[in-house]
Write a protein that binds this DNA or RNA. Structure first.
Lengths: 248, 248
DNA sequence: GGCTGACTTATTGTCTGAGTTATCATAAGG
DNA sequence: CCTTATGATAACTCAGACAATAAGTCAGCC
């Protein structure tokens, strides 16, 4: 399979009760409403506050625990884990993180990681891509050109481009980052669009990456992708300098 | 906080019923016992097979769904997701993946990703590390030297070294990879030890990384870390060439 | 005085069985 | 041929009870 179906799947899955509660709690946690070390209310109290059964609430907590956000133990309660335990790259967690107000430093950190991973991925893709990958990427570029990032179709094409590139690395772990990366791109581009109606044309940057991969030139592909991400970061309104070091 | 406590926490948490079932099912899924697209048995049947209540089974499924392994929907059942949806970097999923027989290609893919991320991380750490980080890394190196990787204490020191390095990047997303990376290192080193009693001394490689970071030399640090990981990969018995491309 | 060990108790964990809701498949209608 | 009811099946939600775990306490002993 050259490239997965990549059907939209943006945020229209009709969450169940436990899902919505997990989401609410998750957002409250990642946004700092609860702090690491804090204890959630007991199951009976919490389930009453949310006006749901204990079952539904417990399943929500189970989800959060699976993502490393909390740790539930008898006699002690459900405690918020330190941030180091959080699966920050989990698509849901990422989504919740940028749900409310995107933290400046966090956004920069994400671009930093994307630069590390996607640049190297572009290098790998240059040597491993199949003809089908190339075709899919070309189609994605045409989609971007045709619809622009102002439309849903255009944004989807952008996501497809990056997803196909990661898929071309043939590395399952890198591919598994696709969901998270997609979430990141979605929120940041949406954030970009919200403030300014797009000042730069992102197509040339993407085209350079595509050409390098087509030519099977790893170094050039890596370089081009690094520039693409750096430009995207610059284009994001909140590209401020990193905050001072944490307490050290 | 210069470096998190990093208290062992290897595999002694006394899993509950839902945790053990999630683990069993998770291993069965990642090991290919169930294939993507397959349907699990219904809740009643499954819970009876495991000899637990539906509640416990459902919470187990909830965990797997949170990690992207399955997708449960009314009327259709609980279906195994395509591998692209799996959160392969989730510590638990990683642990389950290498529980049974480490897949050759998968192991190589993991080293590949580690090389990408940790090398770049070493570069960042070189410019951002605090004195406390340096101290912690020095202590870890002494621990490795003193106990060797043949002992639990030595392996823990190895993990501490890598964890501290990632922590020094001051990038939450990179730091959140620590858990997964630790799981990866644990399994691979254990795998190494099992077959051969350690042929190379890993200390010099680590020392070079440390020195570069101490000197605040990003390029040198990145290079040294890349060599370290590559050597570790070479030292892992199954360092075979990647398999041919997937169907495409 | 400080350590060991049984006891208390708060909290999550597990169970049962019933009723509800979403969604696919089929059939009826336009 | 496409659209719209209908029914069946699975997961979903609920309620209430009991079990298991482990932090904290306090007596007893060295």
């Amino acid at each position: 399979m050259p490239v997965p179906p990549t059907s939209g799947a943006t945020r229209t899955k009709a969450l169940r009760l436990h899902g919505t509660i997990a989401r609410k709690l998750g957002i409250a946690i990642v946004s700092g409403d609860y702090k690491p070390g804090d204890l959630l209310d007991g199951e009976i109290a919490s389930s009453e506050q949310f006006a749901v059964s204990r079952t539904a609430y417990r399943e929500a907590v189970r989800i959060l625990a699976a993502k490393g956000l909390v740790d539930a133990r008898p006699k002690v309660g459900t405690r918020i884990n330190p941030q180091t335990k959080w699966n920050l790259l989990d698509p849901d967690v990422l989504d919740w993180t940028f749900e409310s107000e995107p933290d400046l430093n966090l956004l920069n950190s994400l671009f930093e990681l994307r630069n590390m991973v996607e640049s190297a991925a572009a290098g790998l893709a240059a040597t491993r891509r199949s003809a089908a990958h190339l075709k899919a990427m070309r189609a994605a570029l045409e989609g971007m050109s045709k619809h622009t990032l102002a439309t849903e179709a255009g944004r989807q094409a952008d996501l497809d481009f990056h997803a196909t590139l990661l898929d071309a690395t043939d590395n399952p772990f890198i591919i598994s980052l696709t969901n998270g990366v997609s979430a990141a791109i979605s929120t940041t581009t949406m954030f970009k669009q919200r403030t300014r109606p797009l000042r730069r044309d992102p197509l040339p940057d993407h085209l350079k990456v595509f050409e390098a991969i087509a030519e099977r030139d790893p170094g050039k592909a890596q370089q081009a992708m690094s520039e693409l991400i750096e430009l995207a970061r610059m284009d994001t309104p909140i590209s401020r300098r990193r905050k001072g070091r944490r307490a050290g």
